[in-house]
Structures are given as C-alpha cells and as structure tokens.
Amino acid sequence: MSKLSRLQSQATPWLLLLPAAVLLATFTHIPAVTTFINSFYTTPRGARPARFVGVEQYQSMLADPVFLAALKNNAIYALGTVPLAIGLSLLMAIIVNSSIRGRALLRMSFFLPTVLPMIAVANIWLFFYTPGYGLFDQILANFGFSSTNWLGSPNTALPSLMLLGIWKEAGFFMIFYLAALQQISPSLAEAAALEGASRWYYFRRIVFPLLMPTTLFVLVNALINSFRLIDHVIVMTRGGPDNASTLLLYYIYNTAFRFWDTAYASALTMVLLAALAAFSFIQFGILDRKVHYK
C-alpha cells in the first residue's frame, strides 16, 4: 500500500462518520454541555448580559414549590405507570402469543393506541373525562356515583393522565415481549408439562427468567418515556390544577417558553438529565449483572 492510499483508508471511516458526528454534537453533546454551563448564570435580559451566580439557580430550585411538585408528580407518574404498563404488556403478549381465537384482533386492539399520535388520543380522552357528560362519569353514574371533575381537581388530575399513559404505552411494550416469547423454544413448555409443572410454576421459573433481558430493556425505556412524554399534559391539564399534574419536562417547557427564564430552565434540565442518566445506569450498571440468561 502506498502512503497516500493508506492515508485514504484511514480517513474513510472518519469521513463516513462526519455527518452523523456533526449533527449529534450540535444537537446532543454541545447543548448538554452548554445547558450545564448556563445553569450557573442568570438569564440575559435586554441589555443586561448573563452574570455568573454559581449554584444560585439550584438553590432557588430547592425553594421552588412548583419544581418540587413537578419532581414529586413525575416520581408518582413513573412509579404508577411503569410497573402497571409492564405487567399489562406482558399479559397482553402472553394472550396474543397463545392459541386463543381472534388473536389478530386482540393484537390489533392492544397495539392500536401506540400507533396513534398522543395529541389525538389525548383530545379524545379529554372528552371521556368531561364532568357529568363524559364516558367515565356516564359509566360511574350507573353505579350511583355523582359527577367528578377528573382533570379539574388536584386529587384526580395526575391519576387521569397516568391512566391514559398506561393505555397508550402498554401495547408498545407488548411487542417486545411478544418478540421475546416467540424465541422461547416450545420444547420447554412440553418438558414442563411432562414434568407436571403447573402453568404458574412454568411461567415463574422458566418464562419470566428468560424474559428478564426484555423486562430490563422495557423498564429503562418506560422510565425514560415517563420523563420525556408530556403531550397529554399540554393538551389535558396544562399542569393544573394548582400544579397537581405538572411534570418535569412540562415545567421546563413552561419556564423556557412562557416565562423565558432560560437559565433556570437550564438548571431544571440538568435535573432531568441526571434522572435519565440514572435510568441508563440501571441498564448498564446494576441490573445487567443480575440478569442471567443463556
């Protein structure tokens, strides 16, 4: 190989990577770093440039009731929706993977909410939650319940969003479980049956452990989504009433684009990034070692 062609072949991978690297750096890595830097400054306003204030933004965050509410709501939202959505999605996958009649229809009904835009289904669900008139109140009226202002009262606003979230996401995770179930050899079920193992035992000792990598993958994705998806908050409650349903990203969006306090929004974004980093740490760090499969 001549010197020139060797140089060429060394340059090739870098040239191939160039477009992706430039774009990723511009919209992921550099903004992540500048977010970190800006969180130590004030928001520049008019003629007043940004001023270094150290950890002041973070200090005011700790004293900010809306931030604390958003953080708490997001934790409740994640803890409430993620396990339920995962459990349901596993159940759905098992149903759809069985020999039940009308499998294709069931699969469609489980998966359909996933394909549709959150904004579209949130608008439809907005009607379901209408006090007195909507679907939920109509059904509950049959059982003697009076009308409830589902999205308008602090106790029910967040759970209402969570219900929609579970309905929307479960079918998506079902697909991953379905793929994993189809990889399990049928001879395992036969062997378990020959040994007289109960179905529950077979599920608990064989299927569930084999699905562990999928569960881990789904868990991390579900957690990330619970901090990333706020379309339904925008449509249904706008964080209200009285911040009872504010989620972290929604608060960031509001701070940045309604109050134009970009420095404070940067500090808030750092909290979101820390949460996301923690979730992927689950994947790469702790759980990966405990998941055993062949």
Binding site: P31, R228, Y253, F257, S280
Partner: peptide, 21 residues
C-alpha cells in the same frame, strides 16, 4: 458510546438549548 447517548437524551429533552441553536 457517545452516539448511543442520544438514545437516552432525545433532542426534545434539550429543547431550551436546541431552540437557541
């Protein structure tokens, strides 16, 4: 690894800075 970071940090998470860009 740096590229895979984007799986976790989607562009909408950094919307403040991306808007500025």
């Amino acid at each position: 690894m740096l590229i895979l970071l984007q799986l976790m940090v989607m562009p909408e998470v950094l919307l403040v800075e991306n808007y500025r860009t």
